[in-house]
């Protein structure tokens, strides 16, 4: 299980990387390599050239910026897990990260790599879609950004064009003091890709009425998706029939069947885990009296 031959380059800037990528459409970016290298080893991917961006400082780091946390594409997953900044501002991402692979792959795997790989059951894309993150893309024309929901097109398919490089992910930060999150997933083994993953974030006012709520599901169809929970907004969450809301929102979801689980299973699990995630988020928000930074 050895990769087919390829050339290796390590550009000094994103601009140079984009130039190389634009010039050779069979060149591929490598960052953490935790998904790409198995594909190379099995010769399921056969790039002519690997463009290593993992040491580009301009793509690394976690910073707070205008109501958002911007995570550079080559920031390793473990660095986010250990980040005080992310811990305070992105509680949903913090809940999801322990489900990403296992510790050794999180030590090398990058946030941008997970986004660019666009596995339908991957946790980081799910959080990005759920929170309405923006994906920043750089190419020879400069930096642009697009909502995660538009970025992900299908299983392992994104809006990235030849010559593009995912540069950062801009996760919106909710500033409401009474904030709660929930994350659940089911997989064959804990470290496997999720059959279904559910993420929820809720903000409440002082009276326990919902100010904002989002619920996202991964693993069900060919990309992560948000489900409509707008009915919750303005309602007293203590009395709201959360399970029914989620059930009706998931009833007609397109779902995939595979070796391990059926489409029916995915729909049932989506309803159950979606409700559980939302209930957790509500409970956490209700318990949160203090101010979240």
């Amino acid at each position: 299980m050895k990769p087919a031959p390829f050339a290796y380059v390590r550009p000094d800037s994103v601009a140079e990387a984009c130039e190389i990528l634009a010039a050779d459409e069979d060149a591929r970016i490598i960052a953490g390599g935790q998904t790409l290298i198995p594909m190379l080893a099995m010769r399921l991917a056969r790039p002519t050239k690997l463009v290593d961006i993992v040491r580009l400082k301009e793509l690394r780091g976690i910073r707070s910026e205008a109501g958002a946390i911007v995570v550079g594409a080559v920031t390793r997953q473990v660095e986010v897990e250990r980040s005080e900044l992310a811990r305070g501002a992105l509680p949903l991402l913090m809940k999801a990260l322990p489900y990403v692979g296992h510790p050794p792959t999180r030590n090398r795997g990058t946030v941008g790599g997970s986004i660019a790989n666009a596995d339908p059951s991957a946790e980081i894309p799910l959080v990005a879609v759920t929170l309405g993150a923006e994906i920043e893309i750089e190419n020879s024309g400069g930096r642009t950004s697009m909502p995660a929901d538009e970025f992900f097109i299908g299983a392992m398919v994104t809006s990235v064009m030849p010559g593009d490089c995912v540069a950062a992910v801009r996760f919106p930060v909710w500033s409401q003091p009474r904030l709660g999150t929930g994350f659940h997933e089911v997989s064959a083994r804990q470290s496997d890709f999720a059959f279904v993953a559910a993420a929820a974030q809720v903000a409440l006012d002082e009276d326990g009425r919902c100010i904002d709520a989002v619920v996202g599901l991964g693993g069900v169809g060919d990309r992560a998706q948000r489900i409509d929970v707008s009915a919750l907004v303005g309602q007293d969450v203590a009395r709201f029939p959360v399970s029914e809301l989620i059930r009706s929102a998931t009833e007609h979801l397109e779902a995939n069947s595979d070796l391990h689980v059926s489409a029916d299973y995915r729909r049932r699990a989506a309803a159950a885990l979606g409700a559980r995630a939302l209930e957790d988020a509500i409970a956490e928000a209700r318990a949160a009296g203090g101010v979240v930074q």
Partner: peptide, 11 residues
């Protein structure tokens, strides 16, 4: 006995 086999049979 796969996860889905259990859940599908109960459903």
């Amino acid at each position: 006995i796969r996860i889905a086999a259990i859940s599908d049979a109960i459903a």
